[in-house]
Simulated scan of single mutants.
Amino acid sequence: MGLLKQTCVAMVVLSWGSAAIAGSCLPPAPPWMPTDADDVQAYADLLKRDAEAYFADVENYFRCLDQQRREVFEQARVVSGDYARVLEFLNDMRK
């Protein structure tokens, strides 16, 4: 019975961790881009800075998602092993 309790505790802890991981990457807000030629000319420097900052933020966002994917994949691998042990334990109990 101890293994089953340990596995349940591990699954709860992992679910908390995955909930925390899932919310840590926030997509960047797109910058405002005017359609009026006068506005484009008036704000050209600001628009350029905003666009460059946006694309840098997009790169960081994709890196964050890639890191989350690796972390969740590893968690799934661990949980899969834990679940296999639970199934083995349950099969042994039935014998």
Rank of each mutant, 00 (worst) to 15 (best):
Y83P: 02
C64S: 02
T7Q: 07
F73A: 09
R63S: 09
S15Q: 09
W32N: 10
R85N: 15
R94G: 11
L87I: 14
D38Q: 05
V79H: 07
Y43R: 10
F62P: 00
P27A: 02
Y61P: 00
M11R: 14
S15R: 12
Y54A: 02
D66T: 04
Q41N: 11
D50C: 01
T7C: 07
E74M: 15
W32P: 05
Q68G: 00
R85A: 13
V86W: 09
P31I: 00
F89R: 15
S80E: 13
F55G: 00
M33I: 06
P27R: 03
A10E: 13
C64H: 01
V40T: 05
A76V: 08
D39Y: 03
D36K: 00
Q75I: 05
S80T: 10
E59V: 07
G81L: 04
E52V: 06
K48W: 11
S24M: 10
D92N: 08
R94S: 15
Q68K: 01
N91P: 04
R70N: 04
M33E: 14
L4M: 08
V79L: 14
L87G: 11
R94M: 12
A42P: 01
V12S: 11
L65I: 00
D38K: 10
D66H: 04
L47Y: 03
Q75C: 03
E88W: 06
R63F: 11
E74S: 14
V78K: 14
P30M: 09
D92W: 03
C25S: 00
V12W: 05
W16E: 12
Y61F: 13
G81N: 09
L26W: 04
W16S: 12
S24E: 06
A29D: 12
V58S: 10
A10P: 03
F73L: 10
A51F: 07
V13F: 10
F62Y: 07
V72G: 02
V58W: 04
P31R: 00
W32R: 07
A10R: 15
E71D: 11
G2K: 08
M93H: 12
P31H: 02
V12N: 14
A10L: 11
V58L: 15
D45C: 02
M11W: 13
C25W: 00
D82C: 08
K95C: 10
R77L: 12
A44F: 09
A56Q: 13
L14F: 13
T35F: 06
D82K: 05
E74A: 15
V9E: 13
A10K: 10
C8R: 14
A53T: 10
A29M: 03
E71P: 03
Q6V: 06
L4W: 08
Q6I: 06
Q6N: 06
Q75V: 05
K48L: 11
P34L: 01
R94C: 13
D92P: 01
A42C: 03
G23R: 07
T35S: 07
R70V: 01
R63H: 13
W32Q: 05
L4E: 14
D50I: 00
D36A: 03
D39I: 02
I21Y: 02
W16N: 10
M11F: 15
R70I: 01
A84P: 01
E59K: 08
R63D: 13
V79G: 14
A84M: 04
S24T: 04
A51M: 07
P30G: 11
Q75E: 04
Y61W: 03
P31T: 00
L3S: 06
A22S: 15
A37H: 14
A29R: 06
G17T: 04
P34T: 01
D36N: 05
D50G: 01
T7Y: 06
Q67R: 13
